[in-house]
Amino acid sequence: MISIFSSIYSRFKENWVAYAFMAPLVIFLLIFGAYPVLNVIVLSFFKLDLYESFQRVFHGLAGYRKILFQDPHFWRVLSNTAIYSFGSTILQVFVGFLAAWLLSKKIKGRAIFRGIMLIPWVTPIIVVGIAWRWMLNPSVGMLNFYLSKIGIINNYIAWLGNETTIWPVLLIISTWKGYPYMALMMLAGIQDVPESLLESASMDGANALQKIRYVVLPIIKPILLITALTATLLTWNNFRFIYAMTKGGPGYSTTTISIYIQSRSFQDFKLGEGAVIATLSFLVLLAFTVVYIRRGGLEAQ
């Protein structure tokens, strides 16, 4: 036992400068990262409904049972979140790669195109929400106006009020907003692909698709996987985009988990139930991340 302590002490003595530099970050993470997460997990075992009482009452797993087996919306909200998160990420990866591939070519005005591409990404999400809501407005929106002028539609469509159109529209806008980040990361990867490899592939008779499939993608795979993971996690927890576009409506048709947590916790003030949903979301994401890292081979890399 004494030897363990002396070993820790000697390691600390050797590297105390490094520990000192790390200390503020570790303290920050403990206070603002670990503590709130633990607090939410603990709260999920209590009933705390502010419109009944300010006192919390321990009720074990009852909150989990209620959300998982009795809540009429939880599973739909979870599936909405999966559609939004995975759908948006897949589209962003696809469009981002295309943009990166095009912008890696020596075309005229490449620098300008690269700058223009970033506009959606740097535009504040609330501005994006307001602008798109206007364009999609069922009464005075320009999308309906032009589509009817060129004869594609006869009646104006409530793009954000109709269950068949709402998700495709949201995914397109979300992709438009998020693809520049993907493109930027992949562009950095593509530029690292040695020119000589692409030339050799050309000499061997590979066409553009084959060069992408057998040369570029294997080289940028680590960047692709990490960026896709980051995008999935960020989209899963993204509250602002859906809130700015639809507030989760009509009804619960576009409510995602973060909006559900917010409304359950700060509209109904059922903080215990909100904590249960947040904990379940955390567990789903944790499981997904572990599987993704293992299956994607990121652990080894």
């Binding site: 407005n137 069922p138 009464s139 005075v140 469509i157 409530a158 009020g161």
Partner: peptide, 21 residues
């Protein structure tokens, strides 16, 4: 009623009313 009013809010309704739509 306008076909898209299921996605309109009160401000949209005020505009439609004010414009005679």
């Amino acid at each position: 009623t306008p076909s898209g009013d299921t996605a309109m809010d009160l401000n949209d309704a005020y505009r439609a009313y004010a414009q005679g739509r």
